[in-house]
C-alpha cells in the first residue's frame, strides 16, 4: 500500500506539454496593413517549441535544464511560470513560484531605487510590510545604500543586477525558476549568486535553472535535463547529461 502524503507530492508536474508558435512570415501589426493586404494570403510557419514534454520535479530538487539555443528551455520555463499557455497538456504546480526569468522584473527606469524595491517586491509576492522588514537586508546585500533615491536609469548594469538579485533573494516562494541568472555580473556577483543557491538548497527549496554554464550545473544540480528541438532527449545525473550535451554540440552541424 503506497501512501502519498503532501510531502511526497511533486512540486512541479509537466504532463505532455506541447507548444507551437504560429509565426507569420511577415508582420501585420496594424489595422492598415491588415486591410491593405486582405486579399494577399499570409504564409505561416509552425514552430514547434515544445513537443510532448513530460517531467516531474520533486520538492527540494535542483534541476538544471540544458540545451542549445532554440531548444525550448526558456519556453518551458515560461509555461511553468504561467506566462504562456500550452497548446496541449497541462502543468500542475504545488507551491508558490518566484520566477527569475530576468532580473529586475517591473523595474521602472524613471523611478528611484527605493520605489522600485517596492514594485519588484510586490510582483514577487511580498507584502508591503514584509518588504519594509527586509529593506535593510536588501540594501546591505546590494551595496547601493547611498543611491536609494537615485533613479535607476542612472544605475550601472552591475548595480541593477545586484539590486534585482538582492530583492529576489528575499522572495518567499517554494519554487524558483531561474533563466541564465549568472550570465551577467562580475565574479563577486557570481559568488553571491552561488551563496544564495547554497542557501536555497539548504532550505529545501525547489529550483529550476536554465544555464549554459556546466560548472554550476555540475556543482549544484541534483538532476539535469537536456532539451533538443523541444523534446527531452536526456535526463538524469548532471554529469551524465552534460556529457550528452557536449556530444550533441560536437557532432551536430550549426
Amino acid at each position: 500500500m503506497i501512501v502519498t502524503t503532501k510531502q511526497m507530492q511533486p512540486a512541479v508536474e509537466v504532463n505532455s506539454v506541447s507548444k507551437t508558435f504560429i509565426l507569420p512570415h511577415e508582420t501585420r501589426n496594424t489595422l492598415k496593413e491588415n486591410v491593405i493586404n486582405v486579399f494577399k494570403k499570409r504564409t505561416y510557419e509552425n514552430f514547434r517549441a515544445l513537443d510532448d514534454v513530460n517531467i516531474s520535479i520533486g520538492k527540494g530538487e535542483f534541476v538544471g535544464i540544458v540545451g542549445k539555443n532554440g531548444s525550448g528551455k526558456s519556453t518551458l520555463l515560461k509555461i511553468i511560470a504561467g506566462i504562456y499557455k500550452p497548446c496541449a497538456g497541462e502543468v500542475k504546480i504545488h507551491g508558490d513560484i518566484a520566477p527569475f526569468l530576468e532580473l529586475g522584473i517591473g523595474f521602472q527606469d524613471d523611478l528611484t531605487a527605493r520605489e522600485n524595491i517596492f514594485i519588484n517586491g510586490t510582483l514577487l509576492g511580498l507584502t508591503r510590510a514584509e518588504i519594509k522588514n527586509r529593506f535593510e537586508s536588501i540594501v546591505t546585500f546590494s551595496g547601493i545604500g547611498n543611491f536609494l533615491d537615485l533613479k535607476i536609469k542612472n544605475f550601472s548594469s552591475g548595480m541593477r543586477a545586484r539590486l534585482a538579485f538582492a530583492i529576489a533573494r528575499e522572495a518567499d516562494a517554494q519554487i524558483y525558476l531561474c533563466d541564465e541568472l549568472l550570465a551577467v555580473g562580475d565574479e563577486q556577483f557570481q559568488e553571491k549568486c552561488m551563496e544564495v543557491f547554497r542557501r536555497w538548497k539548504a532550505e529545501g527549496k525547489t529550483i529550476l535553472l536554465v544555464s549554459h554554464n556546466p560548472q554550476i550545473i555540475s556543482d549544484f544540480c541534483t538532476r539535469a535535463v537536456l532539451l533538443d528541438h523541444g523534446k527531452i532527449v536526456a535526463e538524469g545525473l548532471p554529469d551524465a547529461v552534460l556529457d550528452q550535451y557536449h556530444q550533441k554540440i560536437k557532432f551536430t552541424p550549426g
Binding site: I83, L101, G106
Partner: peptide
Amino acid sequence: HLITKIYF
C-alpha cells in the same frame, strides 16, 4: 516588459 517576464 512586465507581461513577458512574470505572470500576474
